[in-house]
Simulated assay, not measured.
Amino acid sequence: MAITSERLNQTFSEGGAQEIYQEIKAKGDFLGFAQRYAFDTDYRVARTALWGLTKAKDEELSELKVIYNELIDQAMQTENSSVRRLTLNIIEKLKMNEDDLRTDFLDFCFEHMVSIEEFPGIQTLCMKLAFRMCTFYPELMDELKRTLEAMEIDYYKPAIKCLRKRIFCGRYK
Rank of each mutant, 00 (worst) to 15 (best):
82 S>P: 14
83 V>T: 01
101 L>K: 05
100 D>T: 04
152 E>L: 07
82 S>L: 07
106 L>Q: 01
49 A>G: 14
138 P>C: 11
56 A>E: 06
104 D>V: 07
47 R>S: 15
129 L>G: 08
52 G>D: 08
55 K>R: 13
132 R>M: 08
80 N>M: 02
62 S>G: 09
144 L>N: 08
63 E>L: 12
106 L>F: 14
60 E>P: 14
77 Q>T: 12
142 D>V: 12
86 L>C: 10
82 S>A: 14
127 M>D: 03
140 L>A: 11
73 D>C: 14
99 D>R: 11
78 T>M: 04
154 D>E: 12
78 T>N: 06
97 N>Y: 13
54 T>E: 06
114 V>I: 12
133 M>P: 06
154 D>R: 03
121 G>V: 07
117 E>Y: 13
92 E>N: 15
61 L>D: 00
149 E>M: 03
53 L>W: 09
84 R>W: 07
67 I>T: 02
47 R>V: 04
64 L>H: 03
136 F>M: 00
127 M>W: 12
49 A>Y: 06
129 L>Y: 03
135 T>W: 06
130 A>V: 04
117 E>W: 09
93 K>I: 05
87 T>A: 09
102 R>M: 15
56 A>Y: 02
128 K>A: 13
52 G>N: 12
116 I>M: 03
113 M>I: 05
97 N>I: 00
137 Y>H: 15
130 A>K: 00
52 G>W: 06
96 M>K: 02
108 F>V: 01
53 L>E: 04
44 R>F: 15
136 F>W: 12
127 M>L: 08
91 I>E: 00
122 I>C: 04
109 C>A: 05
117 E>K: 04
53 L>M: 09
109 C>W: 02
114 V>Q: 04
89 N>W: 10
59 E>L: 02
118 E>M: 13
60 E>V: 01
133 M>F: 15
45 V>T: 10
54 T>V: 05
141 M>R: 09
100 D>P: 13
74 Q>H: 11
97 N>Q: 08
124 T>Q: 07
81 S>R: 01
151 M>P: 06
154 D>M: 08
95 K>Q: 08
